[in-house]
Design a protein around this nucleic acid. Structure first.
Lengths: 359, 359
DNA sequence: CGGTCGAATGTAACCGCTTACATACGCACG
DNA sequence: CGTGCGTATGTAAGCGGTTACATTCGACCG
């Protein structure tokens, strides 16, 4: 583009002219390469300062052919679970001199794909996909890209792709067994986006584990959107479905907080009338009322692990192409309790639902 | 950099060669400029597809000399208040074909400055600074940059800088007056980062308004970090200070939720024993227990306003250099109540603190 | 049939930076 | 005083796109 001679063109050339040196020297000064006499360095720095010069980072990346920027994709930044991983990852990155760009996918695989396109276009040095959704062509696109990638939750290991997973089965099993040990007989699983892998893993495990205690124990399923409002909505549907749960198992803490709200509105006490559990152990789980019994997922560690596998550590090398499995732990707080005899018996109504999912 | 002839070099040239056309034609196809015969377009697209070609966006920005990317700076993405504005802004941007990059500043002006540097380096088309912190040199740096900028909360209007502000004074006044009308006599303001402009605006208004009701009413001040934990911590300090408030006014909802937690732990009932108010009206305010009385700040509208002032609208022109003021509204929920006679009288202890802030 | 014109494509000069290589300089040494 | 060498700087060729301008190619017209 032949640009009109712009009066305030602030580029290397302008700085070079003003300092009476060549662009190469300016570049060397700005990149802290030595080999530059102190007096020249000073002249250059002053010139840059006077011109309010800010290097064009696009030009820089282009010339260098590589960047120190990592891409991060998350399904729902509003959910503190994702935010926490993002934050841990970002701070690890900053500590090692990497920049970070984030994109929200809203659990939509179209958005996931278009964000990945963007990141590839930006030639990020690595890509972390902390998402629950997937796209059939995506894996191919990513392996082709040759960019180091870490998937959390979804995807399969490849030459350039590492997977970090949490053993959701184990976590879910612990919850169901714990509730069963408290005498719960009618449990409901409350989720969102039932088609997504990591979510349906929990749902399936729920159903399987409940089935093990059948017929003394029944299971039921509902789903809405992720979030506070989604949790409330799902609780509303659950209660009006006729199934009268002794315990509600939420797919995550964030939705559980919404559930608590609806129960309080209905005058249903937690845990006296019904127990509620979450998943993730976000900070909010400890601050809501009653505090949530949940499953702890070590988000800090996950963030660090992801970073470690994205950026080649000088010492140890990457576990590229591996799968890393993380174990969750049960955290018991106030939202669960022993089933009262009356609670187990009362409300026994024609519950024709049984184990049939209806989401 | 003279690069080793990279076997899988996927750039315009490679696509052009494979399609048997020039790079100009490829570029035209990829940018949907017409003037390209359909048959050639198809050949080019197939070549690009086969090579898994992804345009280098750095090169593109560099060549175009302008970008369609907006920079967003927020103080604390973890606080839903900031997140909501960010989300509204992002979705407005996407709707108009803009990309968005975010950076967290953690209320630190050093981080703010370095993020601004980054954004300028990326030559963003516009910059939204939704931050509470400030830096003395920053304004100069920004006006010099010539980038369209919108500040929320801080900064002063300039040629290329618009300001969006919420009338926090009005909001705070409404809260204090409301509480006073309920008979509250000992109020505490609970904040964070007391040196930051928007925060101290609320604190000052609190003190002024309380002073108007003096001596029948007393005020007290504490501060901790923003967040759930910070709220809890501040509440702890407040209660152990000897000042026994009838009402606790929090600088934002997020901290208020932390406060509620501590009060519950201490067996102090809200609002029977003490009233609590928030600020912002985040979703969580409605979901916590008890639901928070707060001041509504229209974050959606703020996000849209910011976008509208960042990107020149074809129809109306920007209000650049203006200041836009937004009015907040009181939202009464469950966390505030009338002071019981006993509550007002009991606990009357040697409160030597009076109106003296101690943060 | 030469000329005109518009549509389709090619050529090459940028965008602003990095960096390999060339050059200039000063100084110790034979 | 010429040579060699290390240090400081300059020169220019990339990086991978975009786009102004040139060129080619038919079709259509006088």
């Amino acid at each position: 583009m032949l640009q009109a001679k712009n009066a305030d063109l602030r580029n290397l050339d302008a700085v070079a002219k003003r300092a009476g040196v060549s662009t190469a020297t300016v570049s060397r000064v700005l990149n802290n390469l030595n080999m530059v006499k102190n007096s020249t360095r000073a002249r250059v720095l002053r010139a840059a300062e006077e011109l309010k010069y800010h290097p064009n980072l696009h030009a820089r990346s282009l010339a260098r052919g590589k960047s120190r920027t990592l891409g991060i994709l998350v399904s729902n930044m509003e959910n503190p679970f994702f935010f926490d991983i993002y934050r841990a990852l970002e701070s690890a990155a900053h500590a090692r001199g990497y920049e970070v760009v984030v994109a929200n996918t809203d659990y939509s695989s179209e958005q996931l794909v278009s964000s990945v396109r963007l990141m590839i276009g930006w030639r990020v040095a690595g890509l972390a996909a902390i998402v629950s959704e997937m796209d059939s062509h995506l894996m191919q696109m990513l392996t082709d890209s040759k960019i180091p990638i870490v998937f959390y939750d979804v995807g399969t290991p490849q030459k350039n792709i590492t997977n970090v997973r949490v053993d959701y089965r184990k976590g879910m099993k612990k919850i169901v067994e714990y509730l069963h040990s408290l005498g719960h007989t009618r449990m409901a699983f409350l989720g969102h986006h039932s088609t997504l892998g990591p979510i349906s893993e929990r749902r399936k495990t729920f159903l399987e584990t409940v089935a093990r205690f059948s017929p003394s124990t029944e299971g039921q399923i509902v789903a809405a959107a992720d979030g506070l409002e989604g949790g409330r909505q799902a609780a509303r549907e659950l209660l009006s479905s006729g199934f009268q749960p002794t315990a509600i198992l939420c797919v995550n803490d964030f939705m559980a907080v919404g559930v608590l709200r609806h129960l309080r509105d209905q005058g249903i006490r937690v845990p006296e009338d019904v127990s509620v559990t979450g998943f993730d152990n976000i900070k909010l789980a400890e601050f809501c009322s009653p505090a949530l019994t949940t499953v702890h997922i070590p988000r800090e560690r996950i963030g660090q692990t992801i970073f470690g596998n994205l950026v080649p550590d000088q010492a140890s090398d990457r576990l590229s192409g591996q799968e890393i499995l993380i174990d969750p732990e049960l955290v018991v707080r106030e939202s669960t309790g022993v089933v009262r005899q009356t609670q187990a018996l009362e409300n026994r109504q024609p519950s024709n639902s049984g184990l049939q999912p209806r989401c």
